[in-house]
Design a protein around this nucleic acid. Sequence first.
DNA 1: AGGTCATTTCAAGAGTTGTTGAATAGTCGA
DNA 2: TCGACTATTCAACAACTCTTGAAATGACCT
Lengths: 121, 121
Amino acid sequence: MDRSKALAALSALAHETRLDLIRLLTPAGEDGMAAGQIAETLGLAGPRLSFHLSALEQAGLLRSRKVARNVFYSVDARGIGATIAYVLNHCCCDHPEVRAACTHRVGLLQGEVTLSGTENT
Amino acid sequence: MDRSKALAALSALAHETRLDLIRLLTPAGEDGMAAGQIAETLGLAGPRLSFHLSALEQAGLLRSRKVARNVFYSVDARGIGATIAYVLNHCCCDHPEVRAACTHRVGLLQGEVTLSGTENT
DNA sequence: AGGTCATTTCAAGAGTTGTTGAATAGTCGA
DNA sequence: TCGACTATTCAACAACTCTTGAAATGACCT
């Protein structure tokens, strides 16, 4: 994950409605939910939902697949993981308190991450 | 950390200049850096720097202290940790892939977090 | 083909955010 | 107290983001 992708992902995350979407879709797992069902659950107008879903998808935080006339959206865990990892790696890796919190585990998210190393982009 | 604080922190993070600031200030630790030194290092105009520093401070990601005529800014690791923990806890805790990545360690960041539990706000 | 349903695209408008130069406030040293 | 220095506030403007209703697209059923 590079700088501009991370920035896009953070921007996407930084919105109430989109945080709601992530939260709603997470328990739905790989299957996800159809746009219409999401709209109903969250009480969102169609265009508004579309706008936010595509923002999240474009940022790599959601994935979509068409089934008949429905579009199912599901969270892309790698995208979210990579975003968190980016913040950890590129902004906070030298900070003992944050570093200690994540050193071992975050590395599992994606091969690219080498938290114990000194990567710096 | 509540929803609106997390949102504020994510918004604050979602900007290139502010990411630069966090990155620059992290290695400087608790002591931080004086505003003027930051401005020079990053090549930022005064008002612009002030604007972004106060955005980050307001979001709880930075702290400041006055020394003589300088103002020193340093990262607030708890704020950053709490933000990451919020995303993990409130949006992704049911997602095996992300959960596995952070389960043990993030809990150390702040007492409030109980990643292995089922907290949901 | 015609009707309906699910979703997206479009265009307009309101609101918010970021940048700039000029002005202001506070601190220090002579 | 005066001048220099550090940093912030202000006002204006440009740019971007979000929301809305109307229109368009694509897929299914009869």
